[in-house]
Computed example of a mutant assay.
Amino acid sequence: MAVMALLTNIPVALCLFIIVCYVVSTSFVTKKRFKLNAINKPPKDRSAEPDAPVSVNYFPSRKCNYTCGFCFHTDTSSYVLPIDEAKRGLRLLKEAGMRKLNIAGGEPFLYPRLLTELLCYCKEELNVESISIVSNGSKIRENWLRENCQWLDILAVSCDSFNPETNKKIGRGDDGANVVRLFRIAEWCRKYGIKFKLNTVVNIHNWDEDMVANIEQLAPFRWKVFQCLIVAGENDDETRKRDARTFLVTDEQWQTFCNRHKHIPCYVPEDNNSMASSYLLLDEYMCFLDKGEGMITKSESILQVGVKEAMKQIVWDKKSFVERGGIYDWDRSDMLQSACEGGGNKKELEW
């Protein structure tokens, strides 16, 4: 009826022009919607799935140059996966929803070329959101950081004491120079725009130490403080390479250390209950490790059965992972903005 009204009141040529324009515009919108839905549909966000390996701790090697008495991942194997296989496994993890990769050990910097390849591949090819490395600090060199800083978001250094003699008792080298190296590495991180993180294991040799002044001077963006942990099959008795039972602290000693340092803004404590089953650990064969209850167990390799099937074979509590603060400001967009643009807001992480 509306069209007939137009025909009786508007010249025919103008009426036809209006109708043609309406048909063309309707067709364009329909095609555009179809194209967006059928062709340009955004890829599915795998990280939101319940079993997605959001944050993975990968141990490419067990080899280490230190002999920390409480170590739960000792160098019982010298195996290192061929680089092509390692890359294949990392791609499988990314496709399954991995957003953050943490490379630990062993001591990762015993293999600096391998680290370079892994970092470059994960950032340039896989576009992994965040990559971090945990090191004892003994083998880190400034030229490596200078050449690889564009791919590294976080560098964490393990420091259990600011007393050289205490570090020797723990097994962190025998030269007494750990603290000097630590401050030097922190400065390099600031220089090259890498987030500096500190890890400390509270044990029988350091639970009564006051670290406040040194932590405030180092100013890490995050200080993870762990309660010394026994892992069955790794460090639980004298038949293992490490016997951590003599390094354990009581709950009262743990709380004493925590109460002394809890006012520091970067302080993030994790007791044994918080750690149990909240970490996704991947060994040198790319098998997931389960160090929750009883003997440590492992899955089949993700290279053989895939990520989802391997994850079914171990226990990973995603709820505990989130509750212990497993997701945090783990990229360095704020540092890059500060260095390149003179400041800016932090990028907000979305779960």
Rank of each mutant, 00 (worst) to 15 (best):
G171L: 03
T116E: 15
V20D: 09
D208L: 04
F196I: 01
L119A: 06
Q217L: 15
C266R: 08
V231C: 09
E187H: 13
V201T: 12
N273H: 09
F109C: 03
F321S: 01
I39S: 00
R62S: 08
A186G: 13
D237C: 09
S301N: 05
N143G: 10
K31R: 13
K262Y: 12
N148S: 09
H73T: 07
V249I: 07
W316V: 13
H263C: 05
F221V: 15
Y285W: 10
E165R: 02
Q253E: 05
L126R: 02
N143E: 15
T200G: 04
K87W: 09
S130L: 03
P112I: 10
F28M: 07
T76S: 15
L155A: 02
V249D: 04
K224C: 14
R146E: 15
F162I: 04
D153M: 07
K100E: 13
R91Y: 06
A177K: 12
A244D: 01
N148W: 07
V3K: 15
Y58G: 01
R240C: 11
D237T: 06
M211Q: 05
E300Y: 12
E216D: 12
W151N: 03
F288T: 04
E117S: 14
L90H: 04
K308Y: 10
I264F: 04
I83S: 03
D45R: 14
S333D: 11
A310N: 01
L336W: 00
L182H: 00
Q253A: 02
P11Q: 10
A244Y: 05
D153E: 09
E107G: 12
W207R: 01
D283W: 02
D329H: 12
T246E: 12
